[in-house]
Design a protein around this nucleic acid. Structure first.
Lengths: 343, 343
DNA sequence: TTGTAGGCGTTATCAA
DNA sequence: TTGATAACGCCTACAA
C-alpha cells in the first residue's frame, strides 16, 4: 500500500514529487493553486498521487499555516437528545462552510471536560463550542486567550468575553407555569435540580414570577429537587410527589426537562394515576421522545438546531474577523401544548 | 495573553527557553523526560511556561513523532441512544489508556461519512472506530492501508482485513421470536427495514429460523417493511398493522429496534389497542427509554458499552502490536422480558 | 545535566 | 510555469 521506502510513514509530497519528476513546490501547487500549473504536469502529479495513495498530512499543514478547518463541540451529555440536536445544527452550519465538526462528550463530568478542552487546546482547532459542566472553568478563558474562538452554548456567563447562544430560561419557566395556571391549576410542583445549574435556577425563577403575578400563594408552588436531569430522577421525584395525600397533592408538575418528565409519566402511569386528569405534566426541550410518549408530552421547545447553527456561525465569524465583538444571543422558547396538559 | 512577540501565534518551546534562559532541548526534556532535568531548572522552566501560557502544539508533536493519542468514533446516528452508549464504552476504555476520543456523526448519510473519514485520514488518528453507513466504502481499506487501525463496530464485513465487534443478530432475532412463540403467539409480525441493512436481514433470518423450528406456517410470520429505524417509522408501520382485521391481525410484533417499537407502542395506545393483551411487543437494543416506556418494553439487549470498550481495546492493540492479527468479536444478545410481552 | 542540530510534511517566497 | 529554500514547533540523538 505505502509504496514509498519508509515503513509506517505514508507517502509525502516529496515522494509524489520524485515519482512525478517534478519539484516538491509543484506538488504543493497542484494541491493548493492548481491553476498555476500546466495541465500536463498537473495530470502527471495527480497520477503519482493516486499511485502512491497520497493523503495530505493535516498536522504538517496546520503547523505551517496555523489554520485548522475543524470545529469542536464539547457536549454536556451525548445521551440527551437535546444536545445531539444542537450538534446537528452545528454540523449543518459547518458543512456549508466546508468545516468538519468533531464532538466530545463530557458526560456531565468536570474532569472529562477538562481533558477534552486540554486536548482541543493542544490541537488548535478553528473554534471550540461548549456546553460546559463548569461554566467558570479557567480553561475556557485560556483557550480564548490563545486566539481560538470559544462559544458557550446553552449557558450564560456574566461576562462578555465569549460569544454565547442561549435560550431565555426565565421566560421558559414563566411560560410553562402561565399555561398551567391558565388551565386552572392552583397547586403546582416544580421538579428539578440540582440547584447549581443555572437553568434550574432560571426556570424556577420564571415559574415563581408567573405564579406571583397570578396572585397565587407562594406555598402552593412546591419544589421537588432532583439530583440530576435524567429519567431515573424523574421516576424518583414522582414517587415523592405521589406519596402526598391526594387532597394536598399538586395537580400539575412542571419538569426541568423532558427526560425527567418522561420518568414522572412512567411512574405515574404505573401508579394508576391519570395524566393529565389527576396530574398534568409539562416538560422542557421538546425532544422527539416527548411527542412520542404514551401520553404526548407538553413541553417548552427550544430552537435546538438553530442554537447550534448560530453558535457555529459565531465561531466562524470570530475566527475570520480581526476585531470581532462578542455577542450574546438569547432565543425565545415556545410552549408546545399536548395531551399531557390538556384536558 | 500571548506574551511573546508574534501576534496570532502562541508561545512555543523557543519562547519558553528564552524566558527561562535554557536551551530549547531542556524545555522539551521538562515536557517529556522531567527526571533528566535538575529540580532547579525544571522549576524555572515551569514558571516560564505558566508565565507565557505555554501549551504544547500537538500538530508539531504529531508531525515529529508520527504518533497520535486520540481515537475517533464515527457513529451512524448520534440521535440513537444505542450508539451513544457504545460511545460511552469507547470513552471509558480509552480513558484508562490516556487516550481521548472524538465523535463524528455521519447521521446516516454516506457523504457525511466520507467527509469525516477523509478528515480523520488527513489527521492520522491513533485509531478509527466506525459504524459505517456504507460497510464497503473503499475509504475504510484506504485508512487501514495507511497503517491506522480501523475497527468496524456493530457491523460485520465478509473479509478479515479489519477487526470488528458485533452482536449475533441472527441469534437475537431467534431469541425474540422464540420468546413470543413460548408465550403462545401464533401470528407474529416482524417490523423492520430497509432490507439493505445487514442487521435487518440477520434478525429476520433468526426470526424465521425460530418460526420454522417451532413448526409454524411461514405465512403466519408476516413482514412489515419500514423505511428507517426511527420512531416515526414505527408509528407508520403500526398503522398498517392495526389496519388489518383483528381476526387476522398478528398478536405480537417483533420490532427491528426500540425506536420503532416505541413508535408502535405510541400508535397502539392511541388506537385503544392494549399492549400486551391485544398486541405483544418486543424491541431491540434495550435503550434506556425502553424500560421507561409507558408499557415497559421487552427488548433484546446488546452489550452496548462492552461493544465499545472492546472495540477501543482492539484498536489500541493493533496500534501497538507490530504483527497484529485481526479479530472478529461476536457477542451474544439477551432477551429482557418486560410488561410489553408478558401477560 | 544541558546544549546543538536535523528533520518530520507542508506551504510560501523568491528566483530562474 | 517550475524549482530551490526557509520556516512552522517539536522531539531526539548526540555532543559538550
Amino acid at each position: 500500500m505505502a509504496a514509498n521506502g519508509r515503513p509506517g510513514r505514508s507517502a509525502s509530497v516529496k515522494d509524489v514529487a520524485a515519482l512525478a519528476h517534478v519539484s516538491l513546490g509543484t506538488v504543493s501547487n497542484v494541491l493548493n493553486r492548481p491553476d498555476r500549473v500546466s495541465a500536463a504536469t498537473r495530470e502527471r502529479v495527480e497520477r503519482a498521487m493516486t499511485a502512491l495513495g497520497f493523503v495530505r498530512n493535516e498536522s504538517a499543514r496546520q503547523l505551517r499555516t496555523g489554520l485548522s478547518s475543524t470545529l469542536a463541540y464539547v457536549m454536556l451529555d451525548a445521551g440527551n437528545p437535546f444536545f445531539t440536536d444542537v450538534a446537528r445544527g452545528i454540523e449543518t452550519a459547518a458543512e456549508q462552510h466546508d468545516l468538519t465538526v468533531v464532538l466530545c462528550n463530557s458526560d456531565n463530568r468536570a474532569d472529562r471536560e477538562r481533558s477534552h478542552l486540554a486536548m482541543l487546546e493542544e490541537r488548535r482547532f478553528r473554534g471550540v463550542l461548549v456546553t460546559p459542566v463548569d461554566p467558570d472553568s479557567p480553561l475556557l478563558e485560556q483557550i480564548a486567550g490563545r486566539g481560538t474562538p470559544v462559544v458557550i452554548v446553552d449557558r450564560t456567563r456574566d461576562d462578555d468575553r465569549f460569544c454565547s447562544v442561549a435560550v431565555d430560561d426565565v421566560l421558559g419557566g414563566r411560560t410553562a407555569v402561565e399555561h398551567l395556571v391558565d388551565r386552572g391549576h392552583r397547586r403546582v410542583a416544580f421538579l428539578g435540580g440540582p440547584d447549581n445549574i443555572g437553568q434550574v435556577r432560571d426556570r424556577l425563577q420564571g415559574a415563581r414570577d408567573a405564579w406571583a403575578e397570578a396572585g397565587l400563594p407562594p406555598d402552593d408552588l412546591t419544589v421537588l429537587r432532583t439530583d440530576s436531569l435524567d429519567v431515573a430522577s424523574g421516576r424518583e421525584a414522582a414517587e415523592r410527589l405521589l406519596g402526598q395525600p391526594s387532597s394536598r397533592r399538586p395537580t400539575a408538575a412542571f419538569c426541568i426537562n423532558d427526560l425527567v418528565a418522561l420518568g414522572v409519566l412512567q411512574q405515574t402511569m404505573r401508579a394508576g394515576v391519570s395524566v393529565p386528569d389527576d396530574l398534568a405534566l409539562v416538560g422542557y426541550d421538546d425532544i422527539a421522545f416527548a411527542a412520542a410518549a404514551a401520553v404526548p408530552l407538553s413541553s417548552v421547545r427550544q430552537p435546538r438546531e438553530l442554537l447550534g447553527a448560530r453558535a457555529a456561525a459565531l465561531a466562524l465569524a470570530e475566527s475570520e474577523d480581526r476585531d470581532h465583538r462578542h455577542q450574546q444571543l438569547l432565543f425565545t422558547p415556545e410552549l408546545v401544548a399536548r395531551a399531557s396538559s390538556l384536558g
